[in-house]
Amino acid sequence: MFERRKAEGKPALVAYLTAGDPSPAATAGLVAALERGGADLIELGVPFSDPVADGPVIQRGADRALKAGMTLSRVLDVAKEVRKNSQIPMLLFSYLNPMLRYGFAKLAKDAKAAGIDGVLMTDASVEEAQTYVDAMRAEGLDTVFLAAPTSTERRLELVAKYSSGFVYLVSRTGVTGEQESLSDPIGPLVASMRKYTQLPLAVGFGISKHEQFKSVGSMADGVVVGSALVRVVEQHGASPNLEAELEAFTRRLVDGGA
């Protein structure tokens, strides 16, 4: 997937959505809208009551999803639903505790059966991840880890070692959320990470516009967009045009134009 886009001279769009926002029934349709708009990979966010790594936009998305009754097992139902019509790669994006409560081995099995391709955990360091990685890999699921601007060389090496599928580079220190301009240069982090892995590198945090997508994408294999998409869902949540709005926003992100 990353290779195909590379051949086209474009970065892949990794699109994050909080599953269950605005309702569990809406999510499969929103994934389809993202795919039509040009997304190459979907991160299905599992809502969590205490999302310490997230800014206000994704916090509100998680609140709406939880109020609407979203659970991890219902996220897997959504994945199944998506798989009926689409082969787009899907990643579970979750805080650790809901997965821990579900049970790693059972989760790996059920996620695989639901058509999930990999898992990303926001709040577990590689040091604590061995049992989790073993359980996911046993079912053939990828485990994506994050690297940050604060990561030392030793840590980048560990992140590379535990990651499969791709590596997610966090472009700045901070919580999730769109930014007017991207303050921190990401070139150095991309270059450092490259020393330790041949896996595709996706960069995220703060990206919401086509220009940012292009400039970040020129340095990496993929670009992750989250809060900007969740904001579209927030703004049009009650509207019958939600899917069309999300598709159009995604297309503008990838292709530019008004």
């Binding site: 310490v52 790594a53 650790l96 926001t122 709040d123 577990a124 360091s125 040091e127 604590e128 880890f145 994050l146 690297a147 940050a148 601007p149 604060t150 990561s151 030392t152 840590r155 992140v159 966090v170 220190t173 901070g174």
Partner: peptide
């Protein structure tokens, strides 16, 4: 590694690991 038997440890986003 900060473990008291099975408990404790370090479960934070990667940004906070080096600090």
């Amino acid at each position: 590694r900060g473990h008291f038997g099975p408990y404790g440890g370090r479960f934070v986003p990667e940004v906070l690991m080096a600090p």
